[in-house]
Design a protein around this nucleic acid. Sequence first.
DNA 1: GACTGGCACTCGCTACAGTCGAGTGCCAGG
DNA 2: CCTGGCACTCGACTGTAGCGAGTGCCAGTC
Lengths: 339, 339
Amino acid sequence: MALDDRKLDVLRAIVEDYVSTQEPVGSKALVERHQLGVSPATVRNDMAVLEEEGYIRQPHTSAGRVPTDRGYRLFVDRLSTVKPLSPAERRAIERFLVGAVDLDDVVHRTVRLLAQLTRQVAVVQYPSLARSSVRHLELVPISTTRLMVVMIANTGRVEQRLVELPAPLDESQVTTLRRLTNEKLCGCKLSDTPPLVQSLVEESAPELRAATVALSTVLLETLVERHEERVALAGTANLTRGGLLDFSGSLRPILEALEEEVILLKLIGEVEPITRVRIGDENEIDNLRSASIVSTGYGPGVTVVGGLGVLGPTRMDYPGTIATVRAVARYVGELLAQN
Amino acid sequence: MALDDRKLDVLRAIVEDYVSTQEPVGSKALVERHQLGVSPATVRNDMAVLEEEGYIRQPHTSAGRVPTDRGYRLFVDRLSTVKPLSPAERRAIERFLVGAVDLDDVVHRTVRLLAQLTRQVAVVQYPSLARSSVRHLELVPISTTRLMVVMIANTGRVEQRLVELPAPLDESQVTTLRRLTNEKLCGCKLSDTPPLVQSLVEESAPELRAATVALSTVLLETLVERHEERVALAGTANLTRGGLLDFSGSLRPILEALEEEVILLKLIGEVEPITRVRIGDENEIDNLRSASIVSTGYGPGVTVVGGLGVLGPTRMDYPGTIATVRAVARYVGELLAQN
DNA sequence: GACTGGCACTCGCTACAGTCGAGTGCCAGG
DNA sequence: CCTGGCACTCGACTGTAGCGAGTGCCAGTC
């Protein structure tokens, strides 16, 4: 059955009212607050249809209606327009992000900003190593048999690992190894490095062979294989807004999920610059079936190097949240492009 | 008024029962579960005294007694003995901490371990830069006018900052600068560096002067002045155990406090290897007046390079928690000593 | 055919009264 | 100083009743 325009209007009104009041909305209140031009009885009939189609439901008889996940989905897809940011918000974003001194700082400021603006839980992924390329590899002798390798990526990320050498290296040997490694890997995408690292070993001089092997093992293992992804989190206190009415009673499953980096990455790790909205049950993670997630990719220019997003109750202000998430992602992208 | 031994026994019994049952404990239940050798009536008299002295209180008439913060304090100071760890716990600690590949890894594993063992919120401070000394300073040219300075500390911490150079430097100049900087600062405690950095500028050759100034500014600002302390957090989901009975209803203030690094550092940033217990109101931070914190310093050998601890309801198993926190701190210290 | 006003019905919420029982404080006696 | 006994308090729980928001349905109107 197709829903005519008025029924969609009714759905939109229900979503908007419920989001702002947090209470089931009835037919009478609806016609009072919105110019629907019809009587409560008519609205009731429309509501009955909407309920039958699964867009709204009654918590119990003699209560108003509440949108279902499906209702929110329809609302997000077809009934809402992106809300432009207020000048105050724009200013907040700019003020927050200028003056960041390094990548850590950028990410921390961003995640706090996002949590503050949306009043929800914010998650920001550090630029993915898999989407970074090598800017420089530095080898720092810690002792004669220990080398610290520091990789600086074009995205600003810096990773370091300790390499245990099978035999001591002298200063000039380290210098040679450093030069060779950089010649081979600089400017190269991390995901493309494995064959190059391999050839590095093969082409190495006999006296450097053992050290090169040790180095290449560490490089491959830590930087490529177990992709070192990192995320930052903020705003968990916002989960307690709405006094436990959201999230069906218990915060526990939500907090548990938020502790798992793997889960966070699944939520906001994006490949495309598209904004995704996952509503309640659409979510793959069981613990988050009562939450919605708005996420998007970010990066300098059109490329995407990481994801960011927010998590909140299904009953959230989708248009506002989507607008904020996008805006923050855009600003962060610009910031990264400057470096 | 001095409390005789039996009154102390009664207090101990009340604390133990309340901690395990989470319910106000009455005189009858007390004599049943503990061998006090006296009748409920006698216990009641003792309770009346304990209440008068402020060690216990009644949530309401006709309810049992509950320890006050002061009661817990007395319990911790004089009535409890440190509970030895179970073999299972010992094994868990060892299993958890072997195989850590770098400092980040150590800290993350530690904080999760601590949260899991105590079933509370765990906080671990990274080794403080203020208590670290410089192992190596590396200068990595990013472009002709940009230098990345990477500082490797003896505690395993690695910090990097970007330095904008006023004028381009060539390769050999960078090498010279690197050598000079390392000669001056290597092995030196970070807190002692300011005068040395200053002299570095003064002694620098004219053509390196400008670059040295830029470098020293960054060094002083980021590594010394705004002490770059970091902390890791885990186990927030444990706050929801005991179904909001703990923490006087709302998790909000707790979660808010846990989001502030500054606050976390205040809580667990320790100078001495002593184990501190802050109970409820003893806490300086208003948001945490309904929580208790057990914290201790850790470090290789007897020196302390950072703090770690847990936060839970005032109604917590102090002997067990204290034992676990200490044990974990000791293991982490050993781990750090190996590097 | 679509909309409207009216009406009976449902059911959660609140208030209130009554009961129960855990736990106490006090006191007289050993 | 300890104990048993007793009266008392007060929160927790139960059952009942009234209220009111909100619904579904139906007959009537445009």
